[in-house]
């Protein structure tokens, strides 16, 4: 399985890149910081005796003009492309987003418009090769309008919506789209936030995502308990959601 991974230097993306490599596959990293990309590529090269080369290229989710080139470089490096994964995105607390509208605009643009734009380029490329898998990290935050994640959640709700449609529309043509909805996972992104019950760690989450890619499951909640939690939350009446702070 040859994979292009956007966001493999940190958190869940880092753990997933390792999982893919250690299973004997190839990964091509794309991201924003050349120094970090090289350090992560070195880490991946050391992790499997047969993986002596891991390439990388620059790609910035804030700059859509970087998308096509990064995918082209990745495909050229890997030969046949099987999977494209996006774990990158932005996160900020609701209070900060409300205070700084420009920050909110950037987050909405990156997590929704630009991520979808990136997926469109990836979709065309995978379809042109006769199919493949597109796996994107959305969030449980997009499942219901909730007070603490009004803006972040909205960006992820839009993304989840798009990913579901894509899977319905193109599965017949060989393009499998996987929408991953992580709950609270202990990474640099959530550092400083109080961990709720059922918080996960990136290694276990990465294992679940890798299995979903292998099986082609269109929707994954991880840690699994969050699937149950969100099933309840989705069913709560509006009057209850208005009163609670979850």
């Amino acid at each position: 399985m040859n994979t292009i991974l956007l966001g493999g230097t940190k958190g869940i993306g880092r753990a997933l890149a390792r999982e893919i490599i250690e299973a004997g596959n190839q990964v091509f990293l794309i991201g924003r910081d050349p120094d970090e990309l090289e350090r992560s590529a070195a880490d991946l090269r050391a992790r499997h005796p047969q993986n002596t080369e891991t390439g990388w290229a620059l790609c910035d989710l804030e700059d859509p003009s970087s998308f096509e080139k990064a995918l082209t470089l990745g495909t050229a490096y890997l030969g046949r492309l099987h999977t494209v994964v996006v774990t990158a995105g932005l996160f900020a607390l609701q209070e900060d987003l409300e205070e700084d509208t420009e920050l909110a605009r950037r987050l909405l643009t990156v997590n929704f418009a630009n991520t979808v734009t990136f997926c469109e380029y990836a979709r065309k490329r995978l379809l042109a090769q006769g199919g493949g898998t597109l796996c994107v990290l959305s969030s449980v935050a997009g499942d219901r309008g909730r007070k603490p994640v009004a803006l972040y959640g909205a960006s992820k709700a839009g993304l989840s919506h798009y990913l579901e449609s894509l899977d319905h529309k193109y599965r017949d043509q060989g393009l499998i789209t996987i929408c991953v909805k992580p709950g609270f996972v202990r990474t640099g992104m959530t550092a400083g936030l109080k961990a709720p019950p059922f918080a996960g760690n990136p290694e276990d989450v990465a294992k679940t995502i890798y299995r979903a890619i292998e099986k082609g499951s269109p929707l994954v909640y991880t840690p699994a308990m969050w699937g149950v939690v969100m099933a309840v939350i989705r069913r709560l009446p509006r009057g209850v959601m208005r009163r609670i702070n979850f």
């Binding site: 230097t9 996160f91 920050l103 992104m189 400083g192």
Partner: peptide, 11 residues
Amino acid sequence: MSLVSLNSSVE
């Protein structure tokens, strides 16, 4: 300002 960035970050 608290902006925690994932991989492709702004700040």
